[in-house]
Computed example of a mutant assay.
Amino acid sequence: MGEKVRVGLIYGGRSGEHEVSLQTALAVMKAFNYDKYVIKPFYITKSGEWRAGGFLAAPPQELQELHLADEAALQGTDAILPLFSGLANQQKAVDLVFPLLHGTFGEDGTIQGMLEMADIPYVGAGVLASAVGMDKVLMKKVFAHEGLPQCLYRYFNRLQWEKDPAFFIMEIEIALGYPCFIKPANLGSSVGISKARDREELIAAINYALRFDRKVIVEEFIDAREIEVSVLGNDEPQASVPGEISPSNDFYDYKAKYIDGKSQLHIPASLPEGTAEEIRELAVRAFQAIDGSGLSRVDFFLHKTDGRIYINEVNTMPGFTPISMYPLMWKESGVSYAELLDTLIELAIARYEDKQRLDYCGDNA
């Protein structure tokens, strides 16, 4: 067998989804084929400190092992330098990076930009797609330009809200009505999301969302089924069978996703063949609209009464926890967890090699 591929896993991070990232990292580490890969862990604490461990010959068994608190772990600047070593001596510490960071500073294009500067292949969306996929307002504007069906929404930033809250309350009540959903524009895993049934709850929900981001989006309520599709690929992406979420709570919030384990997942979703195919096609269109690559999970609403389809959002770094929809939908589509990891690494290398064809300096102009 040839030389093993050295994969750097970056996880943790300075976001409200830190714990989700740890769950994802543990699941991914356990799933890797250690006959083909060696894993170098890079853990980012909640305060932003980097820690790097040595190459793993076997997967960790407990979350505590992911914190790399032992004295042998590199910390601070020493931990991050191995990612940039190739710039100095032409020998990279890892062959590619799998960023398993959710939310701020990980899913928003920031870590992707750092890896671009370090000239390292990495799994998942690039800088632009990550940034657009993270910002729900910009995402919806891109979707509107592409003619993708969406629910009604309004948005504003902290300064606008503080200057004239009465205007935005009136606009929301007239345009969207109650109930409605209030979300931080830049966050995932349903962190900071609330459902408001009246004006008092609306004001409280907006102030709560502003704890997590300077920009808030408010969406109309749709009595709908929640349908999701996994997308895999670069320039020729493929869509999995659709799955459906039956939330254990009033909506699919953080607790329903990661804590109580009571939400029901239906894979494949019980849908007419034509509806399922339309949703899969819309998922690919949404992925291409943001210039996605590698992987994404695309979420939809399917109106319970008239059957209309609304795209909700694209998640460019979906969870890989044992109860996460992304790998489960691919499993039902005939792609195992191990095969999925292999494909994502192949896609990352293919995208990197394709970018090497570009003339960044204009020397051949």
Results as ranks from 00 to 15, higher is better:
Gly48Val: 00
Gly48Gln: 00
Gly48Ile: 01
Glu49Met: 02
Glu49Gly: 00
Glu49Lys: 08
Glu49Phe: 00
Glu49His: 01
Trp50His: 06
Trp50Ile: 02
Trp50Ser: 01
Trp50Arg: 04
Trp50Thr: 02
Trp50Lys: 05
Trp50Gly: 02
Arg51Pro: 00
Arg51Glu: 03
Arg51Lys: 08
Arg51Met: 01
Ala52Pro: 01
Ala52Val: 05
Ala52Phe: 05
Gly53Lys: 04
Gly53Asn: 05
Gly54Arg: 05
Gly54Phe: 00
Gly54Leu: 03
Gly54His: 05
Phe55Pro: 05
Phe55Arg: 07
Phe55Gln: 05
Phe55Ile: 06
Phe55Thr: 06
Phe55Trp: 07
Leu56Ser: 03
Leu56Asn: 04
Ala57Asp: 15
Ala57Cys: 04
Ala58Lys: 14
Ala58Val: 06
Pro59His: 06
Pro59Arg: 02
Pro59Ser: 05
Pro60Ser: 10
Pro60Lys: 10
Pro60Asp: 13
Pro60Glu: 14
Pro60Asn: 14
Gln61Ile: 09
Gln61Tyr: 05
Gln61Lys: 14
Glu62Val: 07
Glu62Trp: 04
Leu63Met: 13
Leu63Lys: 14
Leu63Ile: 14
Gln64His: 09
Gln64Tyr: 06
Gln64Asn: 14
Gln64Asp: 15
Glu65Met: 08
Glu65Tyr: 04
Leu66Gly: 10
Leu66Pro: 11
His67Trp: 08
His67Ala: 09
His67Glu: 15
Leu68Ala: 08
Leu68His: 04
Leu68Gly: 07
Ala69Tyr: 04
Ala69Leu: 15
Asp70Arg: 07
Asp70Pro: 01
Asp70Gln: 11
Glu71Asp: 13
Glu71Gly: 03
Glu71Pro: 01
Glu71Thr: 08
Ala72Leu: 09
Ala72Ser: 15
Ala72Phe: 05
Ala72His: 10
Ala72Val: 06
Ala72Arg: 12
Ala73Asp: 11
Ala73Leu: 10
Ala73Ser: 15
Ala73Lys: 09
Leu74Ile: 00
Leu74His: 02
Gln75His: 09
Gln75Asp: 05
Gly76Lys: 14
Gly76Arg: 13
Gly76Leu: 07
Gly76Tyr: 11
Gly76Glu: 12
Gly76Cys: 07
Thr77His: 07
Asp78Cys: 03
Asp78Lys: 15
Asp78Ser: 12
Ala79Leu: 08
Ala79Phe: 10
Ala79Pro: 13
Ile80Glu: 02
Ile80Gln: 02
Ile80Arg: 02
Ile80Met: 08
Ile80Trp: 03
Leu81Val: 13
Leu81Ser: 10
Leu81Arg: 13
Leu81Lys: 13
Leu81Gln: 09
Leu83Ser: 06
Leu83Glu: 10
Gly86Gln: 11
Leu87Ala: 14
Leu87Lys: 11
Leu87Cys: 11
Ala88Gly: 06
Asn89Cys: 09
Asn89Thr: 08
Asn89Glu: 11
Gln90Arg: 13
Gln90Asn: 11
Gln91Lys: 15
Gln91Ser: 13
Lys92Ile: 02
Ala93Gly: 11
Val94Met: 10
Val94Arg: 06
Val94Tyr: 04
Val94Leu: 06
Asp95Trp: 09
Leu96Lys: 00
Leu96Ile: 03
Leu96Arg: 00
